[in-house]
Nucleic acid binder design. Structure first.
Lengths: 218, 218
DNA sequence: AGGGTAATGTCAGTGACTGACATTAGTCAA
DNA sequence: TTGACTAATGTCAGTCACTGACATTACCCT
């Protein structure tokens, strides 16, 4: 099972990837180290599999100490999902950018379409993630419990604001968010079986559309 | 982060808790060991917290070798969620028991009502789980990635059968299942804040009902 | 009584992750 | 340029979840 300690507990977590890079040599080097770690992990995971790659392997491939790896990433899994995890902020911004008068689900569909483009841009990496998630429970578990849960929180907050309700009282924001995340999961799975040839945004939109049809099943 | 290796990969997993106890002394002793481990874990988690309790502590409190603990449970988290994890089969049976002609969401609501009763029966344990999940990301992560994902699979299969569709093609089973799981999560959270005084089944049913209202948000 | 074997015990690992402390190297002011 | 300040990294020893291999125990069954 994965070590799951970064299901971050709210809004207080320190940004792991600086949103404003503050362009100094120091921060450039830091960012470079981070990038090298991700690239090294990527390559090793791909070549020799997730389990057979140790964090020490990755650190050495990136030419840093193992301790440094864990200063940049809270876990081995976080290395794999660094990009998708950051996409959380993209999602937040995209949701904010939607006009106030459009319905919540419509806003989500628009935001997801925006996000979807960015996501599929990195096709090979997405397929690698899917491959590893399919074979390694620790990876798929992390994706669900950390990455998706993070996105879901953004959705809940955005929907609750839109409806002007308290998400602890009104179940709709959370239920809608959960449905949307499931839509993304099934779309991703469909896209993956197509080896990345299908139109991800279309698949996701179709799945999101199905949310409005759920009433027919009652 | 939790070690997440029991996101079991399908239907092939060996039943960790024998469904037919096969009443021999041997299996009774085995079951007893299992029970003592769960009880010991329960008590230690409650008294000294999740992180400060080692698997060795638990094993010793149950008077078995650490190795034996890991023969009964694949991870530390599995000990905490042994009961809820098994509830998966109760959910499956409850879904099967619903008549074929009722709509999918209606069947889910009925099945969940049945399950809800059983769940709340163990009030103190549920509150302990909630308390630990709130403070320990590894625990909440495990719940999402393993327990809930397991339930969700049952729902997906049941809904797909009911609609007579392929859940890989039609997004509705997965989307409905995801929404239902979110409904359970918010209901559980509401029940938890009430310290277990609220009517869980009613809360869950209200949240599930909200699924049919999602169309209003489009 | 005795052979077969499920359950347990023992032991020595592996590997993710952490705390403490030392070292290096940008940064910035004098 | 120098030197203090400190962010980033390195080093090292430790903890703990979890596993494989093999020995032992205890139930089961003839």
């Amino acid at each position: 099972m994965f070590t799951l300690d970064e299901v971050d507990s709210g809004e207080l977590a320190v940004d792991p990837s600086p949103r404003v890079p503050e362009d100094s040599r120091r921060s450039r080097k830091k960012q470079d180290t981070r990038n090298r770690l991700v690239a090294a992990a990527d390559e090793l995971f791909d070549r020799q599999g997730y389990d057979k790659t140790t964090t020490l392997d990755i650190a050495e491939a990136a030419d840093v100490a193992q301790r440094t790896l864990f200063r940049h990433f809270p876990s081995k899994e976080a290395l794999l999902y660094a990009e998708l995890d950051d996409a959380r902020f993209v999602l937040r911004d995209a949701l904010h950018a939607q006009p106030d008068d459009v319905p919540a689900l419509t806003a989500i569909r628009a935001a997801m379409a925006e996000l979807g483009d960015r996501i599929v841009a990195n096709r090979e990496r997405r397929l690698l993630e899917a491959r590893l998630a399919a074979t390694t429970p620790a990876v798929s578990g992390y994706f669900r419990a950390v990455v998706q849960a993070g996105w879901e929180r953004e959705l809940i907050v955005a929907v609750a604001q839109r409806l002007d309700v308290d998400p602890m009282q009104d179940p709709r924001p959370e239920v809608l968010a959960g449905a949307a995340m499931s839509a993304c999961r099934i779309a991703t799975r469909q896209w993956t079986v197509s080896e990345g040839t299908a139109d991800y945004v279309a698949l996701a939109d179709r799945a999101l559309e199905a949310i409005a049809e759920l009433a027919d099943l009652a």
